[in-house]
Design a protein around this nucleic acid. Structure first.
Lengths: 148, 148
DNA sequence: CTTTGTTGTAACCATATTTGTTACATTGAT
DNA sequence: ATCAATGTAACAAATATGGTTACAACAAAG
């Protein structure tokens, strides 16, 4: 099962805010135009990112800005902000294995630490990448005078 | 989003087959009893595992057996057999970012190799764990005279 | 203090995926 | 031939995602 597009969408959004916040008021409409995603979806996602302290959003007057330096925002920060996967809960278990079967009785315990290692490996890699890496790559292509 | 229970279910199933195949005919009913999952779901999963060469299933006469030594069946083998995630497709993208926006035009390219590294880290860890590790742990708890 | 543009959120819908269930044709051994 | 089991189709239920309309709350500007 794929990880929902909320993650890539969130990376897109914060990158966009950083790129344009000095020259434009970056509203949900603005971001909807760049992503081609409904503005309400954008606002809901901005809400999650705001709760995680990654962006700031101005009520009333409008516009979003980045909450801290891009090299201090890791992919893991974003992942945890928008995907609701608790520690050790990446893999879903079938609910009621048979207690009377020695396999059924123990399978959850036996798998737990192994699957936690898998989740940890993934999260380690996510935490090694920051939004600064993204904007660094973006510089190669970027022509800031061109907006959405 | 969590990874579907097909994965943990598949690990459970193959472990069960290995544990009981010498003493019982391990049918989809038998496995349904141990997992507490509908027998048709079991058969569908066994079909995927069979296609991947991980188990053998006897039509007509019934019963499943393990296809190769447990230390040669990695979690990655099982994951790939039951989850349909192509290489570099673990993360879902929003479909049509705006080509006229420098961020929208480049975000997919910029993220692709980074997200591939994340997927690779996860799959590396999955490939480092085998079903032999599971049965080794299971031995500690196991009383083979007790079935489901 | 009213207007204006924006955010936050509720309500509802469509779609996709997962899991469960019934039903039954096909199969292989006895 | 019988019988138990598999493979699979058809459908249902539950859940998650993404989209849409609508509107109250809000902050700034006139």
């Amino acid at each position: 099962m794929q990880i929902s597009s909320r993650f890539t969408l969130a990376v897109h959004i914060i990158t966009c805010i950083d790129t344009f916040q000095n020259d434009y008021k970056v509203t949900s409409e603005f971001l909807a135009s760049s992503t081609n995603v409904n503005p309400v979806i954008i606002r809901r996602l901005l809400g999650q990112l705001k709760n995680a302290g990654l962006v700031e959003v101005a009520r009333g007057s409008g516009g979003a800005s980045v909450g801290r330096p891009l090299n201090e925002i890791t992919f893991l920060d974003i992942y945890k902000a928008v995907e609701c996967v608790e520690d050790g809960e990446l893999f879903h278990f079938h609910e009621n294995p048979n207690d009377k079967c020695p396999v059924g009785r123990n399978i959850h315990n036996i798998l737990d630490d192994k699957l936690r290692r898998v989740q940890q490996a993934m999260e380690n890699e996510l935490s090694s990448i920051t939004l600064a890496d993204v904007t660094e790559d973006l510089e190669k292509y970027l022509n800031k005078t061109q907006t959405c």
